[in-house]
Amino acid sequence: MVRAPSPTVSAALLGGFAVLLTGLLSSGCSGSASAATTPASSGEAPVRVRLASVVTEEVARPVRASGTLAGKQEVRLSTKVGGVVQTVNSDEGRKVKRGQVLAALDLSEIGPLVAQAREAREKALRDLERVKALHAQQVATLAQLQDATTGYEVADAAWRAAAFNQRQATVLAPSDGRILKRMVEPGEVVSPGQPLFLFASADSGWVVRVGLADRDVVRVQEGDAAEVTLDAYPGRTFPARVSEVASAATPGVGTAEVELALDVRTSGAEAPRLLSGLSAKAVVTPSQRQAVQLVPVEALLEGDGEVASVFTLDGDGRTARRQRVRVAFLSGTDGRAALSEGPGGGTRVITDGVAFLRDGQAVAVVEAPSGGPTSRR
């Protein structure tokens, strides 16, 4: 005897068939959708772009560096002997004349030493004159005359040394100039050679000293032109020339010092008030030139250090091709990038629209002749 299926089992079977049918329909629909979108993606509209030609030129790669302003001849003035500072006659920033007394030590100790040496010299001179007279009368021997002569010469040398030290107890301005820094006050006890003033000669001029890395300093030589800007005078540019190039790197730093002679002569503009130690930025144009490929900066894409990318136009004139390049430097004057490795002179690179491209992208070149912009595919 055959029994009829229960309502519960029938409902379960029908539900399972419904789920299966829904899955089949869903997979079929999704497959149809994928097939429908593929042709659409392949038929996308080309990107409108503009081109620029790669130009090969020999240019001077600029060298950029930062440094400080200083007087050409800056001297640390000090005394040869130690002692107590008695007077200080000049302050920072003051102009001084050649031979002007800037500071002096108390001579209470040095003066008696000089007087003692002078008296010893005078006594030795009297002894020598007496022995000479006795020797002329054949009373004194030649050995006695030689001993008296030696005694006088020793005493005279000691007096001259004491007198020299006495003169060195006074600090004099070596030339017309300016006191850049004062490092002493009256009453201080100073040691021999301790700097008391930082002095800059008036006729020595101003220089900017910068430290250059090894790959840059080898391209710079004396006489190369430069431009200097000072943070204290924004917007003003001062011409300069390379006056000195160090022949050895600074120990512990690894850079070589280069000195730029600054030309502060102005044509109609107010003469700048310069101070030693001002921050400066310099751009040196070496006389050494190198062949590079020049492209507009906007043609570069995804720069990473010296490596970047550009898009060039394929041979069919309708496809963009991505190419890796190596950037030598960027020109801040004409908005171009110098490439040490690139697509080659005469090649046309894409400038406008480069941000929307991928390798193999279809493009439409937009040109701008004199009659107005047109497009071609």
Rank of each mutant, 00 (worst) to 15 (best):
L294N: 05
A291Q: 14
R324A: 14
Q361G: 09
R358Q: 13
R326S: 15
G353D: 07
A299P: 00
E302W: 11
E270T: 09
S331I: 02
V327N: 00
G317V: 06
S287H: 14
R324G: 03
G342D: 00
L300W: 04
A271K: 15
V283N: 06
A282P: 11
V366A: 06
E270S: 11
T351Q: 02
D314K: 07
E367D: 14
P286G: 08
P296C: 05
Q290W: 02
E341N: 07
V307T: 08
R318D: 14
T312K: 14
I350N: 05
P272R: 09
Q290R: 14
S287V: 07
P369T: 06
S331D: 13
R318C: 07
Q293K: 13
L330T: 13
R324W: 01
S276Q: 14
E367F: 08
G345V: 08
V292L: 12
D304M: 04
G371D: 09
T374L: 13
R348H: 08
A271H: 13
G303L: 07
D334Y: 02
Q323M: 07
P272M: 15
V349W: 04
L274I: 05
T333V: 12
A308L: 04
T347K: 08
R326T: 12
R348Q: 15
P373D: 08
G342K: 02
V366S: 07
E298R: 03
F329G: 06
T285K: 10
P369D: 04
L313W: 02
V310I: 15
A368C: 04
G303W: 10
E341F: 10
E270K: 13
R289F: 06
A337D: 01
D314P: 10
R322T: 01
G372K: 03
V284L: 15
V325C: 05
R322I: 02
V327C: 03
S287M: 05
Q288G: 08
P369F: 05
V363W: 03
L357S: 11
E306D: 11
D314S: 15
A271F: 02
V297K: 01
G360F: 05
R321C: 04
R273P: 01
V349L: 03
R289D: 11
A368G: 09
V295Q: 00
A362V: 09
L339M: 14
T312A: 09
Q290G: 15
G353W: 09
D352M: 13
S370A: 12
L300M: 11
R322Y: 04
R358C: 00
A299N: 09
L278T: 10
L330V: 12
G345E: 11
A362N: 10
P296T: 12
V325S: 11
V310D: 02
D352C: 01
F311M: 02
L357I: 12
V349A: 00
L275W: 13
D316A: 08
V354R: 10
P343H: 01
G372W: 05
Q288C: 11
S287D: 08
S370E: 11
Q293S: 09
F356A: 12
G372D: 06
P343G: 04
A291D: 08
G317P: 09
L300C: 13
S279F: 10
V363M: 10
A271V: 15
Q293T: 07
S279L: 14
L339N: 03
L274C: 07
D304V: 05
Q288V: 09
